[in-house]
Structure formats: C-alpha cells, structure tokens
Write a protein that binds this DNA or RNA. Structure first.
Lengths: 127, 127
DNA sequence: TTTGTCTTACGAAATAATTCGTAGGTTAAA
DNA sequence: TTTAACCTACGAATTATTTCGTAAGACAAA
C-alpha cells in the first residue's frame, strides 16, 4: 500500500482542496464545484478521481450507487510535504528564508504577526 | 515580450537554480552540473534551454560559438511567485499560516528564529 | 586539406497528464 | 414495462513535457 511521496498535479490538488473543505463527496458534487471556475466534462472529473483513488490519494466508499470519495491524505501532511519541497528546491534548505520571503511580500495584518510572534516564543520555550 | 506568469516545470527549475548560483553559463557547463544528479543526454539539456529561451525564462548571448545563457528572471521574483502560488492554493491565502507550517516542521535554529523576530519588528516599525 | 570534436537546430519518439466519448448497468417515474 | 436520467468503467484522443537522434556548420590539430 504505497502512499508516500505521491506528488499531486495541479488538477489533483484542486480536487483535494474541495474534499478537504467539504468532506467526503461524490464525483457529481466535486464536479459542480470545479465547474464554477473552469469547464471540463463530468467524465473528466470522474476519471481524475478514479486515478487519484488508484494512487491512494483518495479513498472511496462503494456501498452506495454513487461512490463517495474522501481525501486519503490530510491537508496538514500535504502542506508539510509541499513546503518542504519548496524549501529544498527554492530556498537552499532554509525554512527561515522562506518565512521571510512570505512575510515580505504578503503583508500579514497585525493580528497575524502577533500570532507568529507567539508561535516563535512557544518554540523557544519548548527547547 | 510576454514574460509574466511563466511557470517553470521541475526540470526548468533545476536549470534556473544552477544559473542563479553559477551565473551566465553555456549549455555544456549546465549539463555537467545536471549530470551529477541525473542522467540525460546533452541534447536534452540543450533543447530544454532553447525552449526556456523561447519562453523568456532565459536569455542568451549568441556572439560566441557556444551560446551563453543566463536567467531572465531573478531568483527573488521566482521565489515570490511560487510562494504566492503556494499560499493561494494550499493556505487559503494566509501567509502566516504558511509561515507557521514552515516553522513547525523545519526547526530553524535559534539564530534564524532571531532573524525572523527582527524581521517582524522591522515590519511593525515600518507601518 | 582531412579528420575529429564540439556546437546548434530541429523533427520526432517516448512519457505523462488531461480530456472526452461510448458502452453498459441501476433506478425511479411515467 | 418503457423511458429518462443517472452512474461507473474504460479505451483512446489530445495536449504537454522530456528525451534523443541526426544533420550541418565551425574550428583546430594532424
């Protein structure tokens, strides 16, 4: 049951995002959300989700006529994987470089900055 | 001269990384670095760089027999673009969420954390 | 001059990702 | 029971990306 290091394509990520926010859904439900932003046929969405299922990116419940799919990877795990990839390929392995790039270009508001500070303090305390 | 929003593939990114660190180089020079980690023929590297040139990801100087290529987009700009993409697709548009994910999983050392704190303070002062 | 080495250009094969048409099954309403 | 509206599976077309072979020119050493 190989499940590691599976790197979703951009289209697959769109589907995962919908599943993460809506929870378990049928192809039809996912397709309706996708249709809002792009146009593609229903069977395209179906096929994509079937492939994602084979790759173990999704799992599905076949007990009902319309199969119900859900993400088989947590959003957090995927975020971690992608952030790591980014740090490795674009920031010479330095997390703090990425952090500063992120803060520099996308102004977080005062509340967010405060959250980050608290986070930093908590990390200090921990070790 | 369309140059915006060009999203490099993984292979293209490898080449850009080498150019960013080595500076202007010939295909041969880039190819030798690439060969250290993967194997691919010389003309593969050549073709890739030619395509990148067409896409304006690279520019080239043809005055010498061996053309000299250089990155036509700065590393910083590309970092910004990619971080933005990541924030939009995986972190609901919140930079600070990405920051915390990055800090949580990749322990920066004390010195780095300090840098970040200074960075935060500087941002506060600014506005 | 001839040969060998290196270069670019370019067409096209190989591989990967996306898209879609069609066949066949289930179900519910007419 | 017939029809209409769904659903899944699946092969195959389309498009994108990566890879490579081959041709043709430049150049230097023999």
């Amino acid at each position: 049951m190989n499940n590691d290091k599976v790197k979703p394509t951009a289209s697959e990520l769109e589907i995962l995002n919908i599943l993460w926010s809506k929870g378990p859904s049928t192809v039809r439900e996912i397709h309706e959300v996708l249709e809002l932003n792009k146009d593609a046929g229903y069977t395209t969405t179906l096929k994509l989700m079937q492939i994602m299922n084979e790759k173990n990116l999704l799992k599905r419940d076949e007990t009902t006529k319309s199969h119900v799919y859900s993400a088989n990877v947590s959003k957090e795990r995927m975020q971690g994987q992608m952030v790591k990839g980014m740090i490795d390929t674009m920031f010479n392995g330095s997390a703090s470089q990425l952090v500063m790039q992120a803060l520099g270009n996308h102004k977080a508001n005062a509340k967010e900055l405060d959250e980050i500070r608290k986070y930093l303090d908590a990390m200090d305390k921990k070790k």
